[in-house]
Computed example of a mutant assay.
Amino acid sequence: MRLHEYQAKEVFAEAGLPTPDAELAESTDEVLAAAESIGYPVAVKAQVHVGGRGKAGGIELAESDDEAREAADSILGMDLKGYTVDRVLVEAAVDFVDELYVGVTMDRGEGKPVAMVSSEGGVNIEEVAEESPEAIAREHVDPAFGLHPYQARRAVYDAGVEDDVASDVAGVLSTLYDLWEDSDAEDTEVNPVMVTSDREVICADAVMNIDDDALFRHPDLAEMEEAAAEDDLEAKANEYGFDYVRLEGNVGIIGNGAGLVMTTLDLVDYYGGAPANFLDIGGGAKAERVANALDMVFSDENVDSVVFNIFGGITRGDEVAQGINDAIAQFDELPKPIVVRLAGTNAEEGMEILNTDALDVEETLEGAVQKAVEHAGGESR
């Protein structure tokens, strides 16, 4: 579960991390009231689960009512990388002289959590890791003992943080690790941690992603789940129990198994298309679950075609075919063209059941992907 920035900042502030004064707003009038309460200058920040909000126009600074009104009118309702902005965080602007990155995540290669600090804050940390990995100081942590204070200090000094704020930044890192561990988080990070001219350290951003399977241990965080859902699509994914990842393309993808779905994504890209989503219906999927998966993909307005890739092991091809038929029977005309590839257990029985008058059937995965790319307006090789 991904928390919005305003939710993560509530958690961070409760843990003692320094965050700017802020209020959530859903209308221009609420933005103006919040700005007046906080005091200018303020930042008006779109609350959507995407990176690069500033570059995309989702963050604006305002020093007066007129500028705050203009920012609110510009951001509220905008389409930001496929998401409609329906709320913003109005936050006291920070007059900073330096930006840092501080975060904790799991290093799956090492099989350990890793605490990280970088002097190159305020930019995409993935880009920093790829282009100049030496700019990120890392400390791997033995989870049996947690992050030792000396490790936090060493990461801060290795990152080149100035001495007069090093202790405060190390404190931020230690708190983020404690939150990561105590909350069963996948990531806790601040980008940027801002250093002011008065040498104060302020957490100007907040990222916190929680392991869905651990939410039963954290009812306080679970209560945030509905509010954290980005739109009707994410709410529907929660209702159906799907791990649905929305991407930026227009070819919808459904498969039974993460590896199978990833292969399909790669082939869509290879044949000149762009994947719209990642949707794994899991092994042994029954007809109702298959129908729900199609409903999910049909609900994504970015999708122009759907490719269904099923390889039957414990998943039966006839069950999948019945689910597809149940889903498409609801429509006089399909909203998006569907291409199906069935193989494995009861695949022949499934092929006999499928309503081939309403959809395309291909024997090979390559053929199915190429057909779906063509339907979506791409150029298959």
Rank of each mutant, 00 (worst) to 15 (best):
residue 13 A to Q: 09
residue 14 E to F: 07
residue 15 A to H: 05
residue 16 G to Y: 15
residue 17 L to V: 07
residue 23 E to F: 03
residue 27 S to A: 06
residue 32 L to C: 08
residue 36 E to M: 03
residue 37 S to C: 14
residue 38 I to E: 08
residue 43 A to E: 00
residue 43 A to C: 02
residue 45 K to F: 01
residue 56 A to N: 02
residue 64 S to G: 07
residue 67 E to M: 11
residue 70 E to A: 11
residue 71 A to S: 11
residue 86 D to V: 15
residue 88 V to S: 07
residue 90 V to K: 05
residue 93 A to I: 10
residue 106 M to D: 03
residue 110 E to P: 01
residue 116 M to E: 11
residue 119 S to C: 06
residue 123 V to H: 12
residue 124 N to G: 07
residue 132 S to Q: 11
residue 139 E to S: 10
residue 141 V to P: 00
residue 143 P to L: 09
residue 144 A to S: 11
residue 144 A to I: 07
residue 146 G to L: 07
residue 146 G to E: 10
residue 159 A to P: 14
residue 161 V to I: 07
residue 171 G to E: 06
residue 176 L to W: 02
residue 176 L to K: 04
residue 182 D to C: 08
residue 186 E to L: 15
residue 194 M to D: 01
residue 194 M to K: 08
residue 201 V to L: 05
residue 203 C to I: 14
residue 204 A to T: 08
residue 205 D to P: 03
residue 206 A to Y: 04
residue 212 D to C: 13
residue 215 L to E: 10
residue 217 R to Y: 05
residue 222 A to R: 02
residue 227 A to N: 13
residue 229 A to W: 00
residue 237 A to K: 01
residue 238 N to F: 06
residue 253 I to H: 06
residue 260 L to T: 10
residue 264 T to C: 07
residue 266 D to S: 04
residue 268 V to F: 09
residue 271 Y to A: 02
residue 271 Y to S: 05
residue 279 L to F: 03
residue 279 L to D: 09
residue 281 I to G: 06
residue 281 I to W: 05
residue 282 G to Q: 13
residue 285 A to E: 12
residue 289 R to G: 10
residue 289 R to H: 05
residue 301 E to C: 09
residue 304 D to S: 09
residue 307 V to W: 00
residue 309 N to V: 14
residue 312 G to N: 11
residue 315 T to Q: 08
residue 330 Q to G: 03
residue 334 L to D: 00
residue 338 I to T: 11
residue 341 R to S: 08
residue 342 L to R: 02
residue 345 T to E: 15
residue 347 A to K: 12
residue 356 T to L: 14
residue 359 L to A: 03
residue 360 D to Y: 09
residue 360 D to M: 11
residue 363 E to M: 12
residue 367 G to C: 08
residue 368 A to D: 10
residue 375 H to L: 05
